[in-house]
Simulated assay, not measured.
Amino acid sequence: MTVNLPQLRAFLAVVDAGGFSAAAAELGMSQSAVSHAVASLERGLTGPLLVRSSPVRTTALGEQVLPHARIAVSAARSVERIAAEAAGALTGTVRLAATPTVCQGLVPGLLRHWREDQPRITVRLFEGDSSEVSTWLEDGTADAAVLIDPPPGPGIQLATDSYQALLPRDHPLAGEPRVDIRDLEDDPFLISPNGCEVRVRTIHRLAGLRFAPTHRVRDLATLISMVQAGIGVTVLSEVSRSLIPPDLVLLPLEPRTSRRLVLTGPRDRPWHPAVRTLAESAVGHLAGAAPGGHPAPSTRSARAKVS
């Protein structure tokens, strides 16, 4: 039995992309070539790894093989990175993972900057919730991630992201310079049950309020649309500001609380040398840029601790 890296890469791409066609696009290969590579791997392992459904699912054997395939491909990439670093070639592809609000509000400006500042480095974006982002960074699916309030360690704090009240422009408090959450107690409250919920609960606790959301909405666009429709109010982070339509307002909130957005690599293995380059490049860019890429004080404190 012979197992090779192209087969493992094809298998992982199909699992991560959810299908053969999407995996082919990710790998820059034909769909038939991806199918052939996975089929060859299955023949070598004498069993099916995937259920050919939509989306594709792993079999019991596939589930057993998956973590080992990730380790093998990650190890091969590490060898390639060491060689690239020794040659001083800052090239390659970096897989960056982040949560939806960070992807939509902060990352576009960074991608634009990196494309101009580091044109030989390709950044591929993976969007997921907080737990998915951490898992992808840990298991090698991602080379880097923007983590929310991570424990101390190497990385760059991209922003201190404060929490804001999102209100319709015709709301009685929309013209105030800031809003106390106690003044919103009678408004139906909407929440997106993701990593932010813990901090929104904290805001309610600090204000002495019971946390009792009227609606739970997973999708950020749906949440914003519901506020537009007058169904209720919510709390979002400052990084979401570029996504807010003109008929809504995002106002500073009392009690004040914030989160740290940190660009970092894996904790338990060497960083891709291109990740360090991107991190250092981000420091200068964010010295005078806001989450949406416009000048603002919220990110002037961006600081590096890359090691």
Rank of each mutant, 00 (worst) to 15 (best):
P172E: 02
L137E: 02
I191Y: 00
T122V: 11
N4Y: 07
G293I: 09
R256Y: 05
S301A: 13
P291E: 14
R218M: 13
A274Q: 07
V15Q: 10
A289S: 15
T122M: 04
L8M: 09
I148V: 15
A84S: 15
H215N: 01
V217H: 05
R300Q: 09
A290Q: 14
E176D: 13
T93E: 08
G19E: 05
S54E: 13
T2K: 13
K305F: 08
A22E: 08
G292F: 10
T257D: 14
T214W: 01
L147F: 05
P119K: 10
A39D: 09
T122W: 00
M226T: 00
L286W: 10
H294K: 12
T234W: 10
V198D: 09
A87T: 04
P252A: 02
V123D: 01
V79Q: 14
D143K: 05
R169N: 11
H113W: 13
P188Y: 00
E185W: 13
L248M: 04
P273Y: 11
V239C: 15
R256S: 05
R276T: 15
L166R: 06
L278Y: 01
E85Q: 15
G44M: 07
V94Q: 06
V200F: 07
A304S: 11
R169T: 14
R70G: 07
A304V: 10
A145C: 06
A212K: 12
V233P: 12
W136V: 00
A207F: 04
E238L: 15
R178Q: 12
R9I: 03
H113R: 06
H36D: 00
V102M: 12
V123H: 01
I203D: 00
A69P: 07
R178H: 10
V146H: 01
V73W: 04
L251G: 08
R57H: 13
S301F: 05
A142E: 02
T234P: 12
L106E: 07
P6D: 08
S237N: 15
T141Q: 08
P150F: 11
T59P: 12
S35Q: 13
D161Y: 08
W136M: 09
R9M: 09
L223P: 06
P193D: 08
V133K: 10
G92A: 00
A39Y: 04
S53Y: 04
P245K: 10
V51H: 15
